[in-house]
Nucleic acid binder design. Sequence first.
DNA 1: CTGAAAGCGCTTACAG
DNA 2: CTGAAAGCGCTTACAG
Lengths: 326, 326
Amino acid sequence: MTPAGPAPASPPTSKDVAAEAGVSQSTVSMVLSGKWPGRVSASTAQTVREAAERLGYRPNPAARNLRLGRTRTILLVIPTLTAPFFAAVYTGAARVANEAGFSLVIFPWPIIPDGPFRVPHEAIDGMLASSMAEDSLAGPRPVPLVMLDSDPEGTAPAVNFDIEGAVRDLTAHLFALGHRRIGHLAAAIDAWTFQRRASALDAAVEDLVRVFAPIAISTGYEAAYELLSRPDRPTALVCDDDTLAVGAHKAASALGLNVPGDLSITGFDDLVLAEALDLTTVHLPAEELGAQAMTALLDLLQGRSPARPVLPAELVVRRSTGRVEL
Amino acid sequence: MTPAGPAPASPPTSKDVAAEAGVSQSTVSMVLSGKWPGRVSASTAQTVREAAERLGYRPNPAARNLRLGRTRTILLVIPTLTAPFFAAVYTGAARVANEAGFSLVIFPWPIIPDGPFRVPHEAIDGMLASSMAEDSLAGPRPVPLVMLDSDPEGTAPAVNFDIEGAVRDLTAHLFALGHRRIGHLAAAIDAWTFQRRASALDAAVEDLVRVFAPIAISTGYEAAYELLSRPDRPTALVCDDDTLAVGAHKAASALGLNVPGDLSITGFDDLVLAEALDLTTVHLPAEELGAQAMTALLDLLQGRSPARPVLPAELVVRRSTGRVEL
DNA sequence: CTGAAAGCGCTTACAG
DNA sequence: CTGAAAGCGCTTACAG
C-alpha cells in the first residue's frame, strides 16, 4: 500500500494468462467469461483457470468497457447524502444491482450549486434518480432512467410510495384523537413528493393551516414557533420530515407546550431521529424503494417493460400524538 | 430518457469531430486536451472546438482510461453510509477531488457481510478509507491509499482528529462541573479511534467505569440503563457517539434521572442529533477531514510526500452537562 | 476444439 | 503546424 516498494510490475493481462496456460488469448477470454462449454475442452478450461489464479489475473475493466460499449455501472443520483433516507435507498438498490453483476455509484447532485460537478452520463449504463425533477437530469444524451419518489406522470418509469394512503391513515389517526385544526409544517422544497403530501392534506383536512420551512431543525423551529404563537394555533402539527418535527418539538418546548398533551406532532420518514424522540411518523420503506427501482431499471435495460410499483407507507404511532385535551 | 424514441445513434467519436472539422484525429485530441498551444494553430483549434461543440462530443472514458492506464477515479471506502459523519467526509473529499479533475466514488464496505461485494481495486487510481483497519482493505494489488480517522502507525499515511486533546477538554469540562465518577459508554467497534478515546479517558479519569454497546439508540439505551441502575452509578456519562448519547438520554429518562441535574451526558461527532437534543459533544470536523485526506492522496499520486495532519476537535458545550448536585 | 485477427476510441511518439 | 500509425487489453466473428 506504500508508494515505494518493489517495482510495481504492471498487472497481468489475458495475454500473460494465455502464455502461462499455453493457449491463445481468445481461449482465455472464453473460459473466464464462462462461455466456454461446448467450445473449449474441460481440461483446457481448468488449465486456464489455474493459470489465471496463479498470476492473480483480473480483467482490465477499461478494456472490457471499451470493447463491449457498456460499463455495467448504474448511477444513483440523490439530492443529498446527509439524509439517512438516501443511504437506505442506496443499500436496497446496491443489493439488487450486485446480484445482477452491476455496480452502483452514488452521485449527490448538486453537491455544490454551480460547482464543477456534472452528472457523468458517459460512463454509465443507466440511472436511478430519487426525489427530484426529471428534467433537472438532462444530459448530452439520453440514458435509461428510473425515477424514485418522483412524479409518476414523467417520461421515465417511477417507483413511488403511497403518499395518499399514508396521509389518509395519518389524518384518520389525528381525527380519532379529536384533532380538527391541523397545521402542516411543509418542506420548502419543490419536489413532487411534498406537493403530493400537501394536496392530500388539503383534500382530507378542512381546517388546515400551512407554513413552509427548509428541512433543518433550526428552520423547522422557527416556522413552528411562529405558527404555534398564533392565537388560533392548531392542536396537531403534521411535518413533512422527521427533522422538521424535531424543530417543531423544540418550538413547542420553548413555548411551554406539552407534547402530546397540548400539541400532537407527526413526521415523515421514520429515521433514527424519530425513534430518538418517540415521534409518531409515516414509515417510508426507503430500502425497498431502492430495490424495486433497481429491478425496474434492470428490466428496462433488458428491453422488458418495467413495473411501476407503489409501495405502502405505514403509520408508526409513538408518543408524540395524543388526544386533544378539552 | 425513454427506452423507445429515434434510433439512438452511437455517440460521436473523436474521428467524427476530426471529419467535421476537416483535421486529423490527433489534432482533435491535442486541441481538446488543452495541449495544443505551440503545436496547433489558434484558428484550427477554434475550428475543432466548434465542431466538437456542434456534435456534442464527449471523450469516451473507457478508451481514455485504457490508453492512459489510469482512471482519475478515487474510491472512498466507509464502514456505513447511514452515518451523516461519512456524508460530510465525502463532501469535503469530493470538493478537493473535483478541483483536481478527479471523480470520487463512495464504497460502503461491507454493505452485507460475506456478500458479493468486492472493493474494486482495479478501476481506481487511489483509495481513501475512513475509520477502519488498514488490513481489512487488502486487495489483489496495492493501490495508493490514505487512511482517515485510523491508526497513524499504519503503513499508509493517515489524517486524524486530535482525540487526546478532545478528551482532555471533555474531562476538564466535567471535572470543573464537579464530576469525579465518570462512565464511558464505549462503542463496541474494534476501530482505532474508539481505542484511542478509551485510553485517553483511562489516562485522564481516575474513577472510570466502562460499558460497551454497538452504535444504535436501543443498544445505547440498554447499556446505559444497566450502568445507571448500579448503586454506585457515575454522575457523568461520556458516550463514544451522539447516537449512543441519545440512548443514554432515554435510559436516564426511564430511570427518572434528570439531565443534567442528576446526570451529565456527552457525545462525539456533533451530528444533527446532538443539536436536536442539546447535547454537549465533541465536534469532529468531518468535512475538513475528507478534504485534507484527499489533498494528501493527490500528493501521494504525484510522488510528493503527503502531510499527515491532525485536526483539532472542539468541545461544544450545550445543555446536557451541568454541575453535580450535592 | 482452438487460434489469428480485427476493432472498440482514445493519446502520443514519430515523421514530415 | 499537421497527420499517419501504433497500441492500451479486451471480446468476438471468423477460419480452420
